[in-house]
Design a protein around this nucleic acid. Structure first.
Lengths: 242, 242
DNA sequence: TTAACCCTATTTGTCCAACAAGAAGCTGTC
DNA sequence: GACAGCTTCTTGTTGGACAAATAGGGTTAA
């Protein structure tokens, strides 16, 4: 019923910094500022908001963390939009012991993106896409080390997503990269060999070339679930929390 | 070829604050800290990192902006994981004039999530889900005002996504809320009436109840594209940048 | 011994002042 | 008019100060 954006626990009085952030958002909105425009200097912002420079700076740090402004020393702050990149930075913190539920969810998401989107992929894919996929997959055989192989594996799936020519989906896929990498790594360290992955990928590509909808969905689903099978029973990252 | 995470323009020497952020990430990782654990006090962090308190505070602001820590005054900082919520805060800034490409991408994403996921929806949906959907849709008729109606419309689609029982997908859908709302609003201000939307939603629900895969996909796709049709020719939000 | 109370130290939030380094703009000279 | 040099401005960082409120310890009373 409660459709408020943030959680209900807003009993805490908002700090001055939070207030300045809100005022800055309003200021950007009121002045119709957009990407490339310059923000007032810190001193001016101090006068506008009636806050000290430290407070303004902390607020500015938040905007920078959001990827909304870019500050060049001794020059000033300009509005940008690197929010997707910033979102990826957010997930560079391994603060959460990734639960099995999260893994399930991400894996389900991948299935939706890569398996259920057959039609769109078949519609959009070009010979160049297929050549790229084969090239990336070929490198998988020559890649040593679990982490490198996982990166290459992820690269293959990213390239497949790229076929959809949809930046939003690509960004979201990039957002899930850390978790996907762990899923892949876990699969590889268990018993799956690069050879295995390579042949599964090839089979997927073959199905695409043949425009065999059923085969594609079956092979991709099997491939994804093979990497995920190891999470089914055991708690995935118990060894992480020492 | 370049698979670096951030852009190439990292010539700028990292500031001390960025350095402290990185060190905090390492500290969290090394000590195996996880959700619920306490971080050292600001003074201790100053000594650990050899930085001044203001610098440490600015770094802490970044972590707070990321939704990685929660600071309670006079108590300290504890590790949390509100990154998805923080991501939504990020997108509360209307700094970018949303391009038609972005609209296209988001709309395509919605199609993938809501249309292509028929099988999963049909598999998972319960009578309670359907009752909720009908109830939400019924409120659409009694909701006045474009913005309120758009919210209610969005609520309907969110509830449908919730059927998938996948938090990752739900979070991503929430992430796209601002853009989706604008798409819906634009559609409504043109010529679509609440009545229209209501009946389209009802038709979708009926298709679900009948487990009619073809009808569902057709109706949902038509419904989504109807709202989006107005963006096809004209530049969507030229009037926004005054 | 236990419970209640009070006091002190601690911790975060905010502010002020200062300096360094470098960019931008102005000025004077040729 | 063009260029060199200077001044001013702006951000990055540091240190210190105070307020407010909590946590914890010590004291006292039952």
């Amino acid at each position: 019923m409660n459709t408020s954006n943030s959680d209900v626990e807003d009993l805490e009085p908002r700090s001055v910094v939070d207030d300045v952030v809100a005022q800055m958002r309003d200021l950007i909105s009121e002045r119709g500022l957009t990407v490339g425009d310059q923000l007032p200097t810190e001193k001016e912002l101090c006068e506008i908001f009636g806050a000290s420079r430290n407070t303004v700076r902390e607020a500015m740090r938040i905007l920078k963390a959001y990827g909304v402004v870019k500050v060049r020393p001794k020059v000033g702050a300009t509005i940008v939009d690197n929010r997707m990149s910033s979102a990826m930075d957010m997930f560079s913190f391994n603060v959460m012991d990734i639960s099995r539920d999260t893994f399930s969810d991400i894996q389900g998401f991948r299935c939706l993106l890569e398996v259920s989107s057959v039609e769109e992929i078949f519609d959009s894919i070009t010979d160049e896409d297929i050549a790229d996929l084969r090239e990336i997959n070929a490198k998988l055989l020559k890649t040593g080390g679990v982490e490198r192989a996982a990166e290459q594996d992820f690269l293959f799936h990213t390239r497949l997503i790229r076929v959809l020519r949809n930046k939003a989906i690509l960004d979201v896929y990039g957002l899930m990269k850390p978790v996907i990498l762990k899923i892949i790594q876990k699969g590889k360290t268990r018993h799956t060999f690069e050879n295995n992955t390579y042949h599964e990928h090839e089979a997927v590509i073959d199905a695409i070339v043949a425009r065999d909808r059923i085969a594609y969905q079956y092979r991709m689903k099997t491939h994804l679930e093979a990497g995920y099978a190891h999470f089914s029973e055991t708690s995935p990252f118990a060894e992480n929390s020492k």
